[in-house]
């Protein structure tokens, strides 16, 4: 994306939402959607731009969540500082996992599986370690004060998560335009060629992992402040790893708005399916799954990519989707 204007516009429009919509149902929906978008934005840096598909972004989400919660509860540290520490911890875990995985030369499915395994190891450790509250989990005290980073109003939570999403949008924009971003996409397209051109692929991927980890960890930190409770399944469970990769790919991996669009679409789909099917347990998720498959089938390069694809379709009769078939 060449210009910053669309980002500024999107942020401005989203900022205005609570001024126009007062329904807490809608605000809560948007808060959760933006939180998932944020987790997806983290994934997108590494997976979308760097081509390194992680199945275990729960590593970062969970680390951010636990660090934020534990620092407050066990050590009495201010929530804002704990939030920041959670993000830093996410980046630090990114260094460790990235260093191990990339130095060993893991790519493709192997990288995906090693992240999955790390998430699982952390989940099991968190479910037995005393510091995380083990099986009981960690409960953050309800304390609706600005200093405790808890707000009476859903709108303030909304602006907080929107601010985080906005920062992540700007970071993504900066990455995309930087030399680092060019190296990163070069590694994604052809790692061996990039190496031949003198790109330090391991360092580049490691850098992406750190940024990615920090952003997804921020989503975890936010989760704790919003729901005030975390246990090993919430923190390191497969659900968030799946959400973090689902939303950018649906929206458009390797695009600035992909995760945001994907999260809003996926979450809206879930609600829509619920409306259509009424109160039959499971049926809404069946509809959701079918529509999900249909969306993937219709927009192989993500929803953001669909626009470009449609343009191409009008230009020539061959769709972009068919070219890659077979």
């Amino acid at each position: 994306m060449k210009s910053f204007a669309p980002i500024a516009l999107v942020i401005a429009v989203l900022t205005a939402v609570p001024l126009l919509v007062h329904s807490n149902v809608v605000l809560n929906f948007l808060v959760v959607a933006l939180m998932i978008a944020l987790a997806g934005q983290g994934w997108n840096i590494l997976g979308g731009y760097g081509g390194q598909y992680s199945f275990g972004h729960a590593i970062f989400f969970g680390t951010g969540a636990y660090v934020t919660a534990i620092l407050q509860v066990q050590y009495g540290i201010n929530a804002w500082l704990a939030f920041g520490a959670g993000i830093v911890a996410g980046a630090a875990v990114g260094v460790v996992v990235g260093w191990l995985a990339f130095r060993a030369g893991l790519r493709g499915s192997y990288f995906a599986l090693v992240t999955l395994a790390f998430a699982e190891v952390l989940r099991i450790l968190a479910s037995v370690a005393p510091i995380t509250g083990a099986g009981v989990g960690t409960l953050v005290k309800l304390d609706l004060r600005f200093a405790a980073l808890q707000f009476e109003s859903r709108a303030l939570f909304y602006w907080l998560i929107l601010a985080l999403v906005a920062v992540a949008l700007v970071v993504t924009y900066a990455v995309e335009r930087s030399r680092f971003g060019a190296w990163l996409t070069a590694v994604r397209e052809n790692e061996d060629a990039a190496r031949a051109l003198g790109v330090d692929a391991v360092a580049v991927k490691l850098g992406a992992m750190v940024i990615s980890g920090a952003i997804t960890a921020a989503a975890g930190c936010f989760y704790v402040q919003y729901f005030l409770f975390v246990d090993s399944h919430i923190a390191y469970g497969a659900w968030i790893s799946v959400e973090a990769l689902l939303t950018p790919i649906i929206g458009g991996a390797g695009t600035i708005f992909g995760p945001l669009v994907g999260a809003l679409v996926v979450k809206a789909l879930g609600e829509g399916a619920l409306l259509v099917t009424g109160q039959a347990p499971g049926l809404d998720l069946v509809v959701f799954g079918i529509v999900l498959i249909a969306v993937v089938g219709l927009s192989p390069r993500g929803i953001v990519g669909l626009r470009q694809q449609l343009g191409a379709r009008f230009g020539s009769r061959r769709g972009a989707g068919e070219a890659s078939r077979g």
């Binding site: 479910s127 037995v128 083990a134 099986g135 009981v136 989990g137 246990d231």
Partner: peptide
């Protein structure tokens, strides 16, 4: 015992 809240506690 199972290892979450009720079993572990």
């Amino acid at each position: 015992h199972e290892d979450s809240l009720f079993g572990a506690g």
